[in-house]
Computed example of a mutant assay.
Amino acid sequence: MVRHARSIAQQTESTMTDRDARAARNQERSLAAFLKHKAEFDALLAELRQASAENFGADPETVLWGEAAWLADATAKLKDIADQHFRRGEYSA
């Protein structure tokens, strides 16, 4: 009986160790994916900042409704992303 109890305890310890190791590997992979996506996100933001500084290629002397509509659409998409992150509007809790 004592031998059987030790065997169960060893199996439980081994299972917990395996779970902990899998959880640690999963967390490492999750972090790597997160950091990869964050780097891409940051690069896109930098490009957009530069494009914004250059009026998105629009000449202020000749800008027409097409450029204004494009910028309104792009702004709405960014607002939706910000609302998701900050849980505003339709994303509020």
Rank of each mutant, 00 (worst) to 15 (best):
residue 14 S to G: 04
residue 92 S to N: 05
residue 22 R to D: 00
residue 50 Q to L: 15
residue 19 R to F: 09
residue 6 R to T: 02
residue 80 D to W: 03
residue 34 F to S: 07
residue 32 A to C: 05
residue 63 V to I: 14
residue 23 A to Q: 10
residue 88 R to I: 13
residue 88 R to P: 03
residue 70 W to D: 02
residue 62 T to A: 08
residue 70 W to Q: 03
residue 13 E to T: 01
residue 29 R to M: 01
residue 91 Y to A: 05
residue 63 V to F: 13
residue 2 V to W: 09
residue 50 Q to D: 15
residue 86 F to D: 15
residue 7 S to Q: 06
residue 65 W to A: 11
residue 10 Q to R: 11
residue 9 A to P: 01
residue 1 M to G: 15
residue 26 N to T: 01
residue 62 T to S: 14
residue 46 A to T: 11
residue 31 L to A: 12
residue 13 E to S: 02
residue 10 Q to P: 00
residue 52 S to N: 03
residue 51 A to F: 06
residue 35 L to I: 04
residue 77 K to C: 14
residue 12 T to L: 03
residue 46 A to I: 05
residue 47 E to D: 12
residue 70 W to A: 03
residue 23 A to C: 10
residue 21 A to E: 07
residue 12 T to V: 07
residue 93 A to F: 11
residue 43 A to D: 06
residue 92 S to E: 07
residue 27 Q to N: 12
residue 19 R to E: 07
residue 38 K to S: 11
residue 30 S to E: 03
residue 82 A to H: 15
residue 90 E to I: 10
residue 44 L to I: 03
residue 42 D to L: 14
residue 36 K to G: 06
residue 73 D to I: 09
residue 28 E to N: 02
residue 61 E to H: 11
residue 40 E to P: 00
residue 26 N to F: 02
residue 65 W to G: 10
residue 2 V to S: 14
residue 34 F to D: 01
residue 81 I to L: 15
residue 26 N to G: 05
residue 22 R to N: 03
residue 11 Q to S: 08
residue 93 A to T: 04
residue 20 D to E: 09
residue 25 R to D: 12
residue 54 E to P: 01
residue 19 R to L: 13
residue 87 R to Q: 15
residue 88 R to M: 14
residue 90 E to K: 14
residue 5 A to I: 09
residue 52 S to P: 00
